Computed example of a mutant assay.
Amino acid sequence: MDNPDDQLLSIEVAFATPSRQKILTVQVREGTTVFEAAQRSGIVECFSEIVLESAKVGIFGKVVSKPKEQTVKKGDRVEIYRPLIADPREVRKRRAEKARQKKQMAL
């Protein structure tokens, strides 16, 4: 008979704010989804601002589109992302406009 511990995978679950980060190592069974792994990690108890149901999550920097369906693999790092404060396209557009104005003033 197989030992049930043979089916355990070691993964990490990570979350960070500008001032604090936490990476938790979790043992999960084969077939555990990304969402379940994040839930089981208990990271929500460390960061009350996390709303797992609506949070974007990824594995090693790549967003997972269906976290309740995709399963984790041994060694994965599940990352929970904070919502964006500003639209990155708008930020780049404003930065380019400022640079343009600065360049014109220098002429």
Rank of each mutant, 00 (worst) to 15 (best):
M1H: 05
D2L: 14
D2S: 07
N3G: 13
P4D: 10
D5N: 09
D5T: 14
Q7A: 15
L8P: 08
L9V: 11
L9N: 06
S10I: 15
I11V: 11
A14R: 07
A14K: 03
A14T: 11
A16C: 09
A16D: 06
T17D: 08
T17S: 09
P18Q: 03
S19M: 14
R20C: 09
I23R: 00
T25D: 10
T25Q: 12
V26L: 06
Q27N: 13
V28Q: 02
V28A: 01
V28L: 02
V28C: 01
R29A: 03
E30Q: 11
G31W: 05
A37S: 08
A38S: 11
Q39S: 14
G42T: 05
I43Y: 02
V44M: 09
C46P: 05
C46E: 14
F47Y: 11
E49S: 06
E49M: 08
V51F: 09
V51P: 02
L52T: 14
K56R: 10
K56V: 10
V57I: 05
G58Y: 02
G58W: 01
I59Q: 12
F60K: 07
G61I: 04
G61N: 03
G61E: 04
K62I: 05
S65Y: 03
P67E: 01
P67K: 00
K68P: 00
E69M: 02
Q70A: 12
T71M: 05
T71C: 07
T71I: 06
V72M: 02
V72N: 01
K73S: 07
K74D: 09
G75L: 04
G75Y: 01
R77E: 05
R77T: 03
R77P: 01
V78F: 04
I80P: 02
R82N: 05
I85A: 12
A86G: 12
A86S: 14
A86E: 14
A86T: 10
D87Q: 15
D87W: 10
P88M: 02
P88Q: 08
R89G: 07
R89E: 11
E90D: 10
E90H: 06
R92T: 07
R92C: 08
R94M: 11
R94D: 15
A96G: 08
A96Q: 15
E97G: 15
E97P: 13
K98P: 13
A99L: 11
A99W: 08
R100V: 14
R100H: 13
R100A: 09
Q101T: 14
Q101A: 14
K103N: 14
M105A: 13
M105K: 09
M105V: 15
A106S: 13
L107F: 12
L107V: 06
L107C: 10
